[in-house]
Structures are given as C-alpha cells and as structure tokens.
C-alpha cells in the first residue's frame, strides 16, 4: 500500500458521488487517470485492504432492525460455532474477542421481528445461550479510519 492507495482509501471512506461518471470525478480530485483509480480500487478489494466498496445500508431506516449479540463459545468449538453463526445471511459482522464472551456479532434484518427469530435459531443450532444487546441509544457512529 503506497501513498496513493492511502489517499484513495481516505477519500473513498468519506463518500462517493452520484453522477454520470463518478469515478472520473474522484480520479480528477486525486489527480490520477480514472483507469488507475479503478485498477487500484480493484486490487485494494482483492487484497482485502477494503472489505467492500459501495452503498452502506442502514437496516433501521429500511424498516428493519439490528442488534449486537454475544456468545460464550468453548474454545474447542470455536471454529465450528463460527461457521454456524456466519452461515446466517442476517449476520452482518462477527468478531472474535478476548473475553469469556468470545464471539460478538451483529444481526441485521429487513423486518424487526426477524431479529428474535434469528437469535433463537442461532441458539438452537449452536446449543449456546445468546446474550442480546440491542442498542438503547446511539450516541455516535463514524467509521472512518485514516489509512
């Protein structure tokens, strides 16, 4: 990752235009040809430096819901349970964390009542108790990290 990659990442974390030729507009602001922007973006995605590039959807604003949930997974079952949990398309993110509650995941669904159903299904599949921690208040969400 060189300086130009970092500039691309930093700029594209902030947003992307909705216009006829949006990549050309971004490339011009970075002072590079559009072909180079597209090629670099592709390799940042291929190498996993970027998890994704596109619209970031907000489940609640679509009438859906999301929650944060945690599991205490026996170390010997960690990979198996991780596969079971990740297999649910409603699981949007999942992180291993250093704690006895060692698996933390976000469930996002199109309809609010699906959250409870997904959590119950995860309990049934894994045989583990899910701690549901839906937000009560959101004080801030800003996801930008400087590359």
């Amino acid at each position: 990752m060189d300086e130009l990659d970092k500039r691309i990442i930093n700029q594209l974390q902030q947003g992307f235009p909705i216009c006829e030729q949006p990549y050309a507009q971004v490339a011009a602001s970075l002072g590079i040809p559009v072909a180079e922007l597209l090629q670099r973006l592709q390799s940042l995605l291929d190498s996993g430096v970027l998890s994704r590039f596109g619209p970031l959807f907000h489940a609640e604003q679509m009438g859906g819901a999301l929650t944060l949930a945690a599991l205490q997974v026996p170390e010997s079952r960690f990979e198996e349970v991780s596969e079971l949990v990740n297999a649910f398309p409603e699981v949007a993110h999942n992180y291993a964390r250093d704690h006895s509650l060692n698996m933390w995941f976000v469930v996002a669904t199109e309809r609010p009542e699906q959250v409870a159903a997904v959590l119950s299904a995860i309990e049934a599949k894994t045989g583990l108790k899910v701690l549901n921690m839906p937000k009560i208040r959101e004080y801030y969400v800003g996801l930008q990290l400087e590359a």
Partner: peptide, 25 residues
C-alpha cells in the same frame, strides 16, 4: 441516480463509501 439520492437523503444509505479492514490499515 434519483433513487440512490433519495435513499441517501432518507438515510437508507448512510453513504456510498469504502469500508477498510482495520487490521490491514
């Protein structure tokens, strides 16, 4: 484009953006 703008205005789309892998940065 009109539909994307409208979804963005309504907050259905937070923004169109790149999401980095924290570790790789």
């Amino acid at each position: 484009m009109q539909r994307f703008r409208s979804m963005q205005d309504q907050g259905v789309i937070r923004r169109i953006a790149a999401v980095p892998n924290h570790y790789k940065l």
